[in-house]
Amino acid sequence: MNESMLGIINATNDFTSLGNVTAHRSLAALPFGGRYRLIDFMLSNMVHSGIQSVAIFTGYENRSLMDHLGSGKQWDLDRKRDGLFVFTPNCQLEEEEFGSFSHLARNYDYFKRSRQEYVVVTNANIIVAMNFKPILHRHIATGADITEVQHAGRSLQTYILKKQLLMSLFEQYKDQGYYKLCDIIMEKRHEMHIHSYEFTGYTAVIDSIDSYYSRSMDLLRPEVWQQVFQPQAPVFTKVKDEPPARYRSCSKVRNAIIANGSIIEGTVEGSIVFRAVKVGAGTVIRGSIVMQKSQIGNNCILEHVILDKDVKIEDGTVLIGTPEAPYVVQKGMVQGALMKS
């Protein structure tokens, strides 16, 4: 029996609740966990599941995502046959016409030529370590039309179905007014054989600043870290050539993730610090996320803060947020002591 799978990752989702952190990038390219992007997790899952052909459908803000993905080499998807395929939107379409089914239908020939029998359809904003092979075996054993993956009773909008069925849905969607695959599943749940597969491992869906912050902080818990970053199934990402992090004699670090290339002179507690970040002497950072290449001066206090890339925090600045409403500083901004919050 042909049990080969084709992977489809929908990277078109955009949530206004994420505010400034997705103003200049795709949600799929949002930095996460110190050195990764959101899409790395689901893309790595597919590779570990033996999927050798992956199609990614992007939205309009896709420059950083395209730069990150490159040829797919980091995921062993730079192949002569199959490999990584990135499909960008048609810029001539009206925004309200732009949806994942529109993407898929415009690239119908790609699916027609592919040799895989089954398709995995999922989103780019899910943090999970999931192998699709057991789900496919359950799908085949139950004889389902579609298998829907759930976590704690909530749909992850992750589906396995035969490629031929997906193609037939493409042909019908315009006439019947469907926008995405999940729309069909919701409406035709009683007409099709839809099997629910309950995934019990750690799962996080990033769709707001609150979920981004809280799920990032989850990684500081050993039991979560061990579920997300498994030795037998590493999360692949674009490699950056940075030296190891440097800790000055005056630094204090406790329960934190510090990426390579960073220089720490102050105190970092319960925080995530990305690559090439400078933390000045006398500075205290607690419960915060500091993205790559941000520069934090001396004698600053940052609590429950999210700093985007290339932010500069001047000496003596105080920025205070809360776990429920973290203080967010936009990419490339300069924050000084007179602007403290």
Rank of each mutant, 00 (worst) to 15 (best):
M5C: 05
T16A: 07
L18R: 09
L18G: 00
L18I: 11
V21G: 07
A23P: 04
G34W: 12
R37M: 09
L38I: 04
N45R: 07
H48K: 03
H48E: 11
H48V: 03
S49Q: 06
I56R: 06
T58H: 10
N62W: 04
S64Y: 14
L69F: 10
G72R: 08
K73C: 08
Q74Y: 13
L84Q: 05
L84W: 02
Q92L: 12
E94Y: 10
E96P: 00
N107P: 00
K112W: 01
S114Q: 09
R115Y: 05
N125F: 00
A129S: 15
I140H: 04
I140P: 05
I140L: 10
I146D: 01
I146M: 02
E148C: 15
I160G: 10
Q164G: 06
M167Y: 06
G177K: 11
Y178F: 15
L181F: 14
D183Q: 02
I184C: 03
M186P: 00
K188G: 03
S211I: 03
R221F: 14
E223Q: 15
V224K: 05
F229E: 10
Q232F: 11
Y247D: 08
Y247R: 10
Y247K: 12
K252H: 12
A259C: 08
N260S: 13
I263N: 03
I264S: 04
G266V: 05
A276N: 14
G280P: 09
G280Q: 02
I289K: 07
M291H: 14
K293D: 08
S294T: 14
S294G: 11
N298G: 01
N299S: 11
L302N: 01
V311H: 09
E314Y: 00
L319W: 06
V329T: 09
Q330W: 02
K331A: 14
K331E: 15
M333G: 01
V334G: 06
M339Y: 00
